[in-house]
Design a protein around this nucleic acid. Sequence first.
RNA 1: GGAAGGAUGGCAGAGUGGUUUAAUGCGGCGGUCUUGAAAACCGUUGAGGGUGCAAGCCCUCCAGGGGUUCAAAUCCCUUUCCUUCCGCCA
Length: 429
Amino acid sequence: MLDLKLVQKQPEVLAKALRDRRSKLTIDEFQELDGRRRKLIAEVETLKGQRNKASQEVAKLKKEGADASALLQELGKLSDRIKACDAETVEAKAKVEEWMMGVPNIPDASVPVGKDETENVEIARWGSPREFEDEPLAHWEVGQKLDGALDFERAARLAGSRFVVSFGWAARLDRALANFFLDQHTLKDGYIEVNPPFIVNSATMTGTGQLPKFEEDLFRLREQDYYLIPTAEVPLTNLHAGEVLDEADLPRGYTAATPCFRSEAGSAGKDTRGLIRMHQFIKVEMVRFAHPDDSFNQLEILTGHARALLEALELPYRQIVLCTGDMGFGAVKTYDLEVWLPSQKTYREISSCSNCGDFQARRANIRFKPKGGKSQYVHTLNGSGLPTGRTIAAILENGQQKDGSVVLPKVLVPYMGGVEVLEPTGRQF
RNA sequence: GGAAGGAUGGCAGAGUGGUUUAAUGCGGCGGUCUUGAAAACCGUUGAGGGUGCAAGCCCUCCAGGGGUUCAAAUCCCUUUCCUUCCGCCA
């Protein structure tokens, strides 16, 4: 959520942000709703002031043993008026709140203005795509050749489309990657490892911005205030909801490997094959809480942690900065890392690292207290580091050999029980 | 699943219908004292909102929601969470 004061005092700033984001919302709606809210508040508070004064008078009269019945009758009428006026005010406040909750964050000045993903800007490249003699296979074909370890058919029977059953080496690779990522983040990058709930309530979903606007993207447990998390960003960022942190605690980082559940509503027909777009996948997430003056620096650090993983895995990638039209709801600025997929001859998103400014902190009420100063909202950041499924896809495609085997990145060998190359056995799982 | 007890400012903790503008302590901040510090002492210290150029004035907030009343931290209902006990189960 944005700062109400900012929207009131600098409507032109929000107006530009809404234009740049190609949002349908207009500032006029806000000004109308907020004007009504303020008028009603002034009215009801005047009445309440009158009531408070008269009530004290009653107390005084009663203490003196005097008759207060006339005053009481008058107060009865006043209270009825207050009740009616209060109800209207509550409604007007709720309308403003609702509008505010639906407004996206304001992009940073350094974010390129653009309409959609075609106007994102590449800012770095690492590694060079391998040359293949023959046409490289898609990762699901590579997996198929390796004893059918990625089994989409059985998954469809168990659950439906956009699920996978992985067997043997593939299941182990999932676990190996999660462990490798967590080890890097905790031992090298200084994150605190967390094992959070995978189910959270609506207040938590609202804190990070999934609700109220994007409910259709979530899986909700039937008739209950329970939602499956679409990313560990949700429980990790909300860890400090309602808390006041010490300034000395900033910056502070958390990491978790969790399953992520996404309904993928509206992505019908996209990435229908393979591991790219699943209803359920495992992802290691990084979340940082930062001092407002330091958050853009922290975004570079966070993105660096994600980049380091791709480099350790020897996977060619590029870094882009998302343009205003493609950025997520809560972000001030977002870098995407895109990994090279030889079969698609293109870079595909594998990590998204965002600075959310105080947008989530205001929703979730996460503050810190500077020495001798008033408490203020922290800045929150999050980034994937990394999802295991898309990483497996990249490893299989980039490491595939003519004979159907796959050369694994060296850093994974200890995590894979000493296996350096995945080789078909001729048997199917 | 059953029963009982709880939830009050950054923390601890008083407060059972009307001088509660929430006592007190701790912590924080400022000061006195001191060469400096500690200790001691003194003062100060919650959040949100409305109005105003400002000083200020006013309203709301005692887990969430609803109710009773002229008036609620306080009484009633309800939800959530915590603690203890009982039962059941891994």
